[in-house]
Design a protein around this nucleic acid. Structure first.
Length: 103
DNA sequence: CCTGGGGCAGCCG
DNA sequence: ACGGCTGCCCCAG
């Protein structure tokens, strides 16, 4: 029985390269729409840093958000996947957003 | 831009 | 089990 964190990590693993998701979306996909904050916690507590791509998780509206290993690193990782970040936001966020389910 | 309030899992003590 | 604190947050003002 996976804990909340496990569920979150599992969901994050499903995000394909070149796409991004948000804390809010993850919370919704995990079944707790208001647990977006706990999602952020799960990411920082993520045991496998690059393995589980928490760098593909941004804040709502496409804002870059934070990163335990430094936001700089996060931006670089995203850039290497073809995702550009300008002015603290993901360019073309709406199009690059990975949707888990169509409710 | 900044502030305050809300809401939630995890980790102490 | 219980209360208090923390955090890669969100939203309204």
């Amino acid at each position: 029985m996976p804990s909340f964190n496990q569920k979150i990590w599992r969901l994050i693993d499903k995000i394909p390269a070149g796409k991004v998701s948000t804390y809010k979306e993850l919370a919704r996909a995990a079944g707790s729409p208001n647990a977006f904050r706990a999602v952020g916690n799960a990411c920082s507590a993520n045991p496998n840093a690059p393995k589980t791509p928490c760098h593909r998780v941004v804040s709502s509206g496409g804002k870059i958000g934070g990163y335990a290993h430094g936001v700089e690193r996060k931006i670089r990782l995203l850039a290497s996947e073809g995702i550009r970040v300008a002015d603290g936001k993901v360019t073309g966020f709406e199009e690059r957003l990975f949707r888990y389910r169509t409710l």
